[in-house]
Design a protein around this nucleic acid. Structure first.
Lengths: 231, 231, 231, 231
DNA sequence: CATGAATGAGCATTCATTCAT
DNA sequence: GATGAATGAATGCTCATTCAT
């Protein structure tokens, strides 16, 4: 994972800007993931990064900018890791499966990144939530497209976009939650856990598309809608 | 939902302690859900509650105590709402379905509570995270028990506890994520959304139990395990 | 010493004003002596007194007034205890001796009063210091008068008032310090400790009056005056 | 004495850490001596020091730490001033005399230090009182050792340690009180006042050692012990 | 370029004091 | 008379941010 230098002493060596920037962001991701946005202090970040606070500001701007930059970088890294594991020409189920595997792989190897993305980012108000929600939204859309594409293959009346999107949201949430569960229960290999989710979702989705649905014994499920007005 | 009085002026009317306490906690849940624990200030909470800060402290103790009390109250409310919608004698699928309906119903009617529980609580270090993680863990265990119970019905070799638990974690995460999605896309009735999740999960789970599983076209899914060492 | 009722419950019984007042002041002296003026809170005082805060204010006014009243009462009690032990017609040495005995007796029996008078009162700015300094000044003056009177008896050129006053100040300070020492070393009876001080001072004073003084071996003691300008 | 700038305006000039630290402590001693620990606010101290509050905390830690540091510094300064004025090889009376002179000299030149040490430190609970009481205790022990040493010279049955200690406590208290009196009556030179105390104590002590003691006319002085039970 | 030194602004918390019942 | 409920005004302390060297 990202390196740290707990205490710093003396003058920092002059380094090319790009290297410095990465060094700082590594430190920032580490600190943010451990303490969360608010509890993390610029003092600690600069300490961990091994530079002085004015440098921190010179390179990455304000605390908010720094956080946003971290999130963007980590989100990009994750998206790229996933995209890199997926073959665009493969059939939908294979794409989904490869994506899941890549996702679990990334989470396992980048715990700090994952913590920042999953836990910290969503809990802040301000501009972060929006940015992160955007990225998450894009991920959901990609999955939704996959689902739609797959359903098309099956000669079935095309499911509404909204239906696919909602299922994609559920799938993404399931993946996130399962990833967290896996971090707490690491005795099972990532592949097994990922496969389990793949099975659950893909088979369920197949049944759904095939019209093979579950029915409540007596009442129609829609009946609940009456009791849940959206304010 | 909970009322607010942005600015307060003059002396607050004398109220019995219990009423004031609820009033304050409503305000606190509102503010915490909007800003998160750290960004929420006791000043704002007391403003929203329509009282002065000393009352806040007299009634609910420190900021941490207040937050913990809020979380506990909202978590209890949600658990009770769900438990109240589930018949203990019903078959597992019906129980799951009722639980889902009750969950979506609660989220729809208590957005602030949901935000606090879902977003804020997990992102703080300290004692909150633990407490909340405990409750989530209990919820997952309940669902896992349901799954195990259901699988037993089917004369199938009993799924390992870990397998059930992981699936339950996925299901809970899917529910959370779908609830969030629904709050952003409220045009579909809660029942429809909940039913979709129910279908996906239950049918998929049925296939899983029946041994009707998805296979990657060429490589065994386990192969991914090699690339995801747990550090 | 003064009684306490740690916790109070229900409505206080109606009592004649004088009794209530004494009750309150006993509590206040107790709390002030334990915590000092600033650290003592009106909340704690009212708790210990067994009444509500508004009563506290109704009876004794502000915190400063309460403190001043306490000091005045305790100082008066002490002065009266001492005066009561001294026979006005007795020769000066006997008067001094009786006064010392009475002083040590009072301190032994009223530790809280003594703490308030000695430690708390002098450390506050404000009007207390002045009031207390006044009382202490009066005590010093009384002792000084005794010394002057005694010297007159001895057919000696009357010592300057200032000289007597300074010696009285020294004696009072010695008594205070010795009383504190005695509270920390209670194994010796008060009478023994008091007698020791009496001896030291009276014999030394006798020598002084008799012109039997100590001389530095080589240099005149006054030489130090040059190095100690008063700013 | 220490300089003050009641109001501060603009940014403070950059100073090396050590200088600023002394500047701050000078201000703190000044404020603490005027107002006492509790009434002194960090705001006022930083104002008087001519810096902002964060600097105060950066350099000296919390209010308690600052106070403790002040006390330690001033106590050390005073002890050193006194020790520096005393020749270790001189006979006991000369040592006592030099110590007294040095003490009065220090008090005259460092009123604020003296106030902090004498008035504020003893009135606080917490760790200060203990620390200060320790130093005072050490001072008393030193004086007691001097007295014992001196008595030994006189071929007299060695006075009990407790007796010497109590007399030392009386002497120290007399010195403190006389110093306060002198600050209020500065028309007499320090040397004269100090000499007066030296005379009183030394001659009285000589008589005591010589067995030349004062006796109450009729009753034995010990009789008072009955009336002073130690609770 | 790099940093030690500096600060404005805010936050949690407490306390003396007073209404309204 | 007596009290629970209420508050204005500090106070200790921290943090993101920026000069001056």
């Amino acid at each position: 994972m990202h390196a740290e230098q707990p205490v710093r002493t003396g003058r920092a060596k002059r380094l090319p800007r790009a290297v410095r920037e990465r060094q700082i962001m590594d430190a920032a991701v580490d600190v943010f993931s451990r303490l969360g946005f608010h509890a993390a202090s610029m003092d600690e970040i600069s300490d961990v990064a091994g530079i002085s606070k004015p440098m921190l500001y010179a390179y990455l701007g304000s605390k908010e900018e720094l956080f946003a930059t971290c999130i963007r970088r980590e989100a990009t890294r994750m998206m790229e890791a996933i995209a890199g594991g997926v073959e665009a020409e493969a059939p939908p189920d294979v794409q989904l499966w490869s994506g899941l595997r890549a996702f679990f792989g990334f989470v396992g190897e980048n715990r700090a990144s994952w913590q920042v993305l999953h836990r910290q980012a969503s809990s802040q108000g301000g501009p972060f939530a929006e940015e992160l929600a955007d990225m998450r939204g894009r991920a959901i859309s990609l999955v939704a497209a996959l689902l739609v594409h797959s359903a098309d293959f099956g000669n079935v009346p095309r499911a509404g976009d909204k239906e696919a999107e909602s299922l994609a949201a559920a799938l993404v949430g399931a993946g996130e939650s399962l990833a967290d569960w896996w971090l707490d229960n690491p005795e099972e290999p990532a592949g097994v856990v990922a496969a389990r989710l793949m099975n659950l979702v893909w088979m369920g989705f197949g049944d759904l598309v095939a019209g093979d649905v579950w029915h409540p014994p007596s009442r129609r499920p829609e009946s609940v809608a009456d009791g849940a007005p959206v304010s």
